[in-house]
């Protein structure tokens, strides 16, 4: 464990909590892509199946449970409790355009051809594109609530910090997981234009609105 990974996990947890609080407090999931949240719940479900087979540490187990719970509560709030407030017509990204290539690739490129490993690989590839429906929705509506931009900032920051963690682990433990690294870099690249808008607009107190 290193500081980049701890900060990354905290950033990830913070993002998830910001979103939960936003939906719960405002009793609305306007501007939030329910599809992205479904993909994140799927990412955690397929990645954390080893929760019952491999014990890494208390921290690892606790965080996995928290992430799983928060993901499903968020999906439940969007499609259950506050479904009347979800603008599903703007949340129109075709999930099959993501799920089909990700599934195919996880069978082609993996560390070993076992069920758990393929599901883990699937979750890694899926996570790198899971935010696309949300970014697509913002590009369609042309704007995002400030609290949603903070959610996206910490969500993007978490994988950027993981890249620092992988560089650190490569130099200190000669540990290197090519699938996670390549996916993580792709995932972070998808946030770059958002990071630019966040820094140039939101941090200057303006509302995030796309030109």
């Amino acid at each position: 464990m290193n500081v980049f990974r701890i900060l990354g996990d905290i950033s990830h947890l913070l993002a998830i909590i910001i979103l939960l609080v936003k939906i719960w407090k405002s009793k609305s999931c306007a501007g939030i892509s329910g599809k992205s949240q479904i993909l994140f719940a799927l990412v955690f479900t397929t990645r954390y199946l080893d929760l019952f087979t491999t014990f890494i540490s208390i921290y690892n187990t606790v965080m996995k449970v928290i992430f799983l719970l928060c993901a499903y509560i968020t999906v439940y709030m969007i499609y259950g409790k506050f479904r009347k407030t979800s603008d599903s017509e703007n949340d129109s990204f075709r999930l099959e355009f993501l799920l089909v290539p990700v599934t195919g690739l996880s069978f082609l490129e993996n560390h070993n051809f076992t069920a758990l490993e393929i599901l883990w690989t699937f979750s890694i590839y899926l996570e790198s594109v899971a935010i696309l429906p949300q970014l697509f929705m913002i590009s369609k509506t042309g704007e995002a609530e400030t609290i949603t931009t903070h959610y996206l900032f910490f969500l993007g920051l978490y994988r950027a910090l993981y890249i620092a963690n992988w560089i650190w682990r490569y130099h200190t433990e000669n540990f290197y997981d090519q699938i996670a690294v390549v996916s993580g870099v792709v995932q972070t690249i998808f946030y770059c234009d958002f990071f630019y808008l966040y820094v140039t607009k939101v941090l200057k107190g303006k509302k995030l609105s796309l030109p």
Partner: peptide, 10 residues
């Protein structure tokens, strides 16, 4: 490259 047999990251 030392690939991860055990996935110890979240």
């Amino acid at each position: 490259s030392v690939e991860s047999a055990k996935h110890d990251e979240l």
